[in-house]
Simulated assay, not measured.
Amino acid sequence: MKRLRQINFLLVVITLLLVNCTRSKIVNETDYDQLYAVWYDNDYKDSLAQALKPAVQRALTLSNTVDNRVSIDSVLNELRWTRDSVSFHKLSRKAIKYAKSKSDEYMLANAYNDIGMYYHDLNVMDSTFYYYIKAENVYKQVGDSMKIGEMEFYQARLLFEKGLHMESEVKVSNALHILKDYPLNPIPFEANQLMALCLLERNDYKEAKKYMLEALTLMQKDFKQNKVLDKPRLVLALSMLYLNLSEVSYLLKNYSEAINYAKVGLTYTNSDTPDVMIGVIKSY
């Protein structure tokens, strides 16, 4: 799923320059941009790079303190979406050096993950996978099962994109097994659907539908509570899921069910829903 996020550049810069005066460590939360494969056009990337210049220049001068590492991590987290390769690699090297010298494992893992995402955006898949593995290995060192599960999912998605569907299936199975112990993590919403896609590649439509229905159960459980996803993200995720369910029902030759799923999917569309998605749903 891809979406285009609008950012107020001035506020981004101000936030990054002043971030974390009191925070003492890297916040280790699910990265929603990574989860939903955010994509920006080149004009956006270049504008963001220009806006980030003051924050990047400041980050490159910071000493190796706890708060400064958080600031560097925050800047690198935004810089990964730009085409400023010189600044990105310079700051990522600094982040890795600082993290290693102070045994700051979460900063180190974040840096590796950011580099992996940077390469993913450039469609350099082997380098992406390499840095995702490095990030996961750091999480293994600190015993962070939730982050290990997340990295298994991102590797699974990458393998699927490379056409390695059986390998992807193994990875996504690992992710689902680990993350079942973390009911507030949103990745199982997408991981169940990725497993379904893997199964569709070998024409196991019935089993694929089971995983999509499991994703639907998880989303419906969260719909009134929004403890896992906020309402806008959840509504968009549901519209996409119903589209996928409609497709699977069609493959199973249950055409009336396919139409019904498509109709339900339309009830979750709004002004933020991509036109192409609405068009596909209406085609049923």
Rank of each mutant, 00 (worst) to 15 (best):
L91M: 00
L251S: 09
Y112H: 05
T65K: 01
V66I: 08
A175R: 03
Y242K: 10
N244D: 13
D144M: 08
Y119T: 05
S74K: 10
T61R: 15
M125Y: 15
D272W: 02
I178T: 06
T269D: 03
A237N: 12
M146L: 11
I7M: 11
Q141F: 02
K134P: 00
K94W: 10
R83S: 13
G143R: 08
Y205A: 07
E207W: 01
I133P: 02
W39I: 11
I259Q: 12
Q50F: 09
T82E: 03
A49G: 14
A262K: 04
L158M: 14
H177G: 06
S145I: 06
Q57M: 09
Y154N: 00
T30K: 10
A135M: 11
I72E: 04
L251D: 07
H89L: 11
G116L: 05
Y154M: 05
D121R: 15
T65S: 13
K162T: 10
F223R: 06
S249R: 05
Q57N: 14
K282Y: 05
W81E: 09
T82C: 02
R157V: 04
I72G: 04
Q34E: 07
Q220Y: 05
K231A: 11
E29G: 00
L218M: 10
D73E: 10
V66A: 13
Q225S: 13
W39K: 15
H165G: 02
M1Q: 13
D230H: 12
A109V: 05
G279Y: 06
K25I: 02
S249E: 14
R202A: 03
S71F: 05
Y242G: 11
Y211A: 01
T269F: 01
S246Y: 04
A37D: 15
I278R: 12
K171Y: 08
K171E: 02
A196F: 04
L229C: 04
V172C: 04
M107H: 01
P232V: 09
E105Q: 10
K2C: 03
E214W: 03
R80M: 14
C198N: 15
K209A: 04
Y119R: 05
D46E: 15
I115Y: 03
G149M: 14
E190H: 06
K94N: 08
L199W: 04
Q6G: 07
R93T: 11
S168G: 08
N20C: 10
L199P: 02
D84R: 01
I133V: 15
I148N: 02
L252I: 09
R3K: 15
H165W: 07
F189H: 00
L60R: 08
L200I: 11
L158N: 07
K53S: 10
Q6F: 13
L252N: 06
L184G: 02
S92V: 13
Y44E: 11
Q220G: 07
L251I: 00
